Amino acid sequence: MPLPKTAHTSRPWRIHEFTKDFHLEDVWALPTPGGPDDFPRLVQLIASQNDPNDFSLAYRVLFAIRWKLGALFGWDNSDTGIASRVPSLRDRLPADLRDAPPGPNFQSVPFHSVFLTDNEWAAEIANRTVHAIMHIGWVPNETGGYRGQMAILVKPNGPLGKLYLAAIRPLRHLLVYPAMLRTFHRTWQSQPA
């Protein structure tokens, strides 16, 4: 479920300390109810989500088109990513976060973990269009438990990046996020707590 941006900006997240030049694009409640100690389980679920068949056909087709366009136009070449076109967000971290393990490696998507705390995890991706951060938090819910919350922060790369973000906005809201959230919910429910 989409949330107002204040659901992210009003929380005392560490991510706020070093992303002032990023724009908060989206905030979503994740259908992952749990207890106070379930955050590591959510982080592992997201990082290890690697079976494309877990996602809807529309989702898979959309991402296949995106990767084909990226290959055709060179959006995802090695010289367009983290440490090539843009420095890693890890370079901005305060010492306590930089010296801690960054979090898990992703199994099937080109995101890189930046930092992990007991209730907050950030991962980044960069290409020719954008430098983006996926921020996952563990927040109290309305029923006295906890749930995940996802925020997407972006820094477009020039006019191409702005055009790209505008073009994919409806697709993210109508296809990508709903399909991703259904998959997270189904996987979360099927895993032992």
Rank of each mutant, 00 (worst) to 15 (best):
D118I: 02
L116Q: 12
T117F: 06
Q149C: 08
P156W: 06
H131L: 03
P156E: 03
V154I: 14
T143K: 11
N127P: 06
N127C: 10
Q107A: 12
L160P: 04
I133N: 08
E142N: 11
L116K: 00
Q107P: 05
V114Y: 13
V130C: 10
G145I: 02
R128F: 09
T117V: 08
H135F: 13
W121I: 04
N141Q: 09
H112R: 15
W121K: 03
G148A: 02
E120P: 07
G137A: 15
P156Q: 05
E124K: 00
G144R: 12
F115C: 06
P140Y: 12
R128I: 02
I133E: 06
P156F: 09
V139R: 10
G137I: 06
S113I: 00
S108G: 13
N127M: 04
A123Y: 10
G145Y: 13
F106I: 05
N157M: 10
S108H: 13
E120I: 00
V130F: 09
A122C: 14
A123Q: 11
G145P: 07
E142R: 14
G148E: 07
T117M: 03
L160D: 01
M134K: 05
T129S: 11
I136F: 14
A122H: 06
P159R: 12
T117K: 05
Y146K: 03
N157Y: 07
E120V: 01
P104K: 09
M134V: 12
G137T: 11
L153A: 01
I152N: 13
A151M: 05
L116G: 00
Q149K: 10
I133L: 15
E120W: 09
E142G: 00
I133G: 03
G144Q: 12
R147Q: 15
T117H: 01
H135D: 04
N105Y: 05
W121Q: 01
P140Q: 14
I136C: 00
T143H: 12
W138I: 00
G103Q: 03
A122V: 15
E124P: 01
A132T: 10
L160C: 06
H131R: 04
V154F: 09
V109T: 14
G148P: 03
A122G: 12
E142Q: 13
P159V: 08
V154Y: 10
N127I: 02
G158R: 15
I152A: 12
I133A: 00
M134Y: 14
G103H: 09
L153T: 06
G145E: 11
P140D: 14
K155E: 08
F106C: 04
I152W: 10
F115E: 08
W138V: 02
L160I: 11
T117Q: 10
N127L: 08
A123C: 14
N141E: 08
Q107S: 11
P159L: 13
L116S: 03
V130M: 13
P104T: 06
P104N: 05
E120L: 01
T129N: 15
P156A: 07
R147L: 07
P140C: 05
I152L: 14
R128H: 12
I136D: 05
Y146G: 04
P104S: 09
N105T: 11
K155Y: 05
N105R: 15
W138G: 04
L116C: 06
F111C: 01
P159E: 03
M150C: 12
